[in-house]
Design a protein around this nucleic acid. Structure first.
Lengths: 339, 339
DNA sequence: TCTGGCACTCGGCCACGGCGAGTGCCAAGT
DNA sequence: ACTTGGCACTCGCCGTGGCCGAGTGCCAGA
């Protein structure tokens, strides 16, 4: 079938180009891949593919390279899943096993992903929305300063300094502690702030400003702030693809230093199990128009705790990268789920 | 005086080269700086400076550029302190003021330093050695798993997951908590682990493994691990100096992703008040032989809580960079000291 | 000790031309 | 209706060679 061969040609072009980073010509294609047709035929197909916008030539009398659209089609229809080797799976597991606390899991994941894929890796810190309160500790740091520490059932520990309008002492702190623990333990973090508001009626009047306003704000802030945090590693890998980026390297690095941008890239990909690929302009970040993002969510069950992924050149081994991202996400999900 | 003018010439060369990044010739020197002598005279001086190893020519028939040794002399003897503008000081203050917790201070500092100096900034997390224990919380996470949270008087909160050999329940956790708090509150963190060892005798036999081994290890690990952590920002600025680094950019980025390397760079510069500059090979890191490191310690009093600094091209505005690093360190020190 | 003059060097730049990979088109074959 | 070999053509790459000019080193004179 004619249509089939064309797609086969596209696949061949993508695969060759990913390896060589050089425009691929008809002759080389016909030789290296067993297409069973002559270069001339391949040329016809290429010409058609170009017309449809899947490939393009950097200049006349050069081979073709895939366009964004070409990569898209490749990812959507032409690429299978390239499974990881057993050694690689073992490496993932042993690398993550040594983590001593939850932050460490994130830090290790991001380094692992960067080393594995040899690209820039990004991991979002796990969301706290679905965690619930296990214990709250309140200590005084100064005459008008409190430190509030919240321990969740998932083992996360979050802290926040509160500047009080009214003076506080150890007694007040103790009272606050027991009140908060009595009414909040077991509550989910996302809902705890509402509970706190209602709770202020039952506390001593002079404590109300602390209890209601501040604690509520703290809880909210914790949930939101944590979701905005991301870890990144492997920026050195960007220079590996220096040919692909040329002078844009600078703006790419700058973009990647913006939390907002990172969130945009991986914060949206939060379905677990599905790996999403955004290619070129699909990233919606102008500075990253020459890159591709492979991302997924991690965490047990359908609700992701956060996103993770890699950013690399469009010229990327998609099947393999997708497999790697998925595998790491799976292990991290299990690790966090088990705690 | 002859010697004086030579040094003046060196200074002029360094200053011009820092601005233009082009080898500077005798004519331009005599014109742009009011040396009061002719280009020919300058040439003689340059020739002498070259002989002494302070400057060099990239190739015959080109101007001169400073060598490592030349920069060294410049920093040691020729550069004054370029004070920050009032606006800059205000900017530092307001930028750091918004920090919500201690980690946030570090994250903000490093970004601030990177933006201010337009170079790569590195900030070490504050050491815990001189903090003392304010409160210890122990909660169970699972049948054999405890979470230990330590709150220090400086407002730091550190956590650690402990896998117990023997089963633990809430009662044991509670008992642990009160024992630990009774004997450790007020102790300095660095010494607390010793206290814990001695303390194991007085606890119930079946708890000893937990108390002695684990808690001690945890405390030690906390102190050490915290000192190894560093934050980095502004890697995008490296590409700004693309002319200086050329192909070595890759290896520089790689080196900077190694915690060990970063510690080597800023962990050693822990005197507060003094800004140390290491130029080229003085960094003791081969990949950074074309860079310079400006670092200092931060924290109240003579004992630094940690180091901070910037990494940039040797061709750097040393007086200004040193002033900026010092200023940020000072503000951060005050901020942490006040808590 | 400084200065102006002068010959010399050598990297950067540009224009030129040959090479070759790759293309598009066409006419012939299946 | 496809496929194929042939063929002319395009154009980027690369090595060559010549020019230019910034910058130097040296020297003789003030």
């Amino acid at each position: 079938m004619l249509e089939d061969r064309r797609l086969e040609v596209l696949r061949a072009i993508v695969e060759d180009f990913v390896l060589s980073n050089e425009p691929v010509g008809s002759k080389a294609l016909a030789e290296r891949h067993s297409l069973g047709v002559s270069p001339a035929t391949v040329r016809n197909d290429m010409s058609a593919l170009e017309e449809e916008g899947y490939i393009t030539q950097p200049h006349t009398s050069a081979g073709r390279i895939p366009t964004d659209k070409g990569y898209r089609l490749f990812v959507d229809r032409l690429s299978g899943v390239k499974p990881l080797s057993r050694a690689e799976r073992r490496a993932i597991q042993s690398f993550l096993e040594g983590a001593v606390d939850l932050d460490d899991v994130v830090r290790r994941s991001v380094r692992l992903l960067a080393q594995l894929t040899r690209q820039v890796a990004v991991v979002q810190y796990p969301s706290l929305t679905s965690s619930s309160v296990r214990h709250i500790e309140v200590v005084t740091l100064g005459p008008r300063r409190l430190l509030m520490v919240i321990i969740t059932d998932t083992g996360r520990v979050e802290q926040r300094i509160i500047d009080s309008l009214t003076p506080v002492d150890d007694e007040i702190a103790g009272e606050l502690r027991s009140t908060l623990n009595r009414d909040l333990v077991g509550q989910r973090l996302a809902e705890a702030s509402d509970v706190v508001i209602a709770l202020s009626d039952r506390t001593r009047p002079e404590l109300r400003p602390c209890v209601a306003t501040m604690t509520g704000a703290v809880l909210e802030a914790l949930v939101e702030r944590q979701e905005e945090r991301v870890a990144m590693a492997g920026t050195a890998n960007l220079t590996r693809a220096t040919v692909d980026f040329a002078d844009s390297l600078r703006s790419i690095l700058e973009a990647l230093e913006e939390q907002v941008v990172l969130m945009k890239l991986i914060g949206t990909a939060r379905e677990t199990g599905t790996v999403t690929v955004r290619i070129g302009r699909e990233t919606d970040v102008d500075a990253l128009r020459s890159t591709a993002v492979v991302a997924t969510g991690y965490g047990r069950g359908p609700f992701a705790l956060g996103g993770m992924g890699v950013v690399g050149p469009m010229r990327m081994d998609y099947p393999w990268t997708m497999a790697a991202v998925r595998a790491v996400a799976k292990y991290v999900g299990e690790l966090l789920g088990a705690d």
